[in-house]
Amino acid sequence: MTALEKEPTTPAQGEPLVVLSDVQKWYGDLHVLKDINLTVHRGEVVVVIGPSGSGKSTLCRTINRLETIGEGSIQLDGKPLPEEGKALANLRAEVGMVFQSFNLFAHKTILENVTLGPIKVRGVKKADADAKAQELLDRVGVGHQAAKYPAQLSGGQQQRVAIARALAMEPKVMLFDEPTSALDPEMISEVLDVMVTLAKGGMTMVVVTHEMGFARTAADRVVFMADGQIVEENTPEEFFTNPQSPRAQDFLGKILKH
């Protein structure tokens, strides 16, 4: 599937891949996710935006069960999320995750960070995993750093390695939890470039971000959250030029002012 084919087909194409139905979550008395209904289709790029504390990161983390939910259901590729054990580990291998703070394995080299999952979880031979990892690292532009340790790389480089690590598992969907929030400004674009390429290549993505530029360029749909609820969802064009809810208008007014 090419970028050209993808362009006109909004809001969705392909069958549903991630389906959240009536999801509720509480932290004690705090109702952090309220009545969440969201369907992400195969090949779709969904950008989740909203003010701090709106529950967008929590929503993202429920999809691979880093956060449990109180009520409702989440299905991945037609199957409900397993609760624990081997089945859950298998599910997580199908869902790539990129964290705000990179979370590269500090005691392993860049190459080992990328090959660990394929070797230990998928049972790929080391030579094959190494070759695949090197190719992925080359693709995200850090191939020449393969023998180094994470602490020797810049933040932007580390985040690109984290993306390569997730891709090495050949996931069905990639989750990005504020992937550029911890980066210095000059490094943000090198990470976004990789993500845009990935989006254009047809990867199914759920991206929690404050990068409105990325949302405009790469998203098929923008989901706006506030106070644990999905307040509004629309195409990027519609959302940014003609937001419907007062909350979204207020939010966009603040961030687009400068």
Partner: peptide, 12 residues
């Protein structure tokens, strides 16, 4: 984050 990253690539 190290636990989380490990579990998200499918390690038990």
């Amino acid at each position: 984050g190290q636990f989380e990253a490990a579990t998200t690539i499918g390690l038990d």
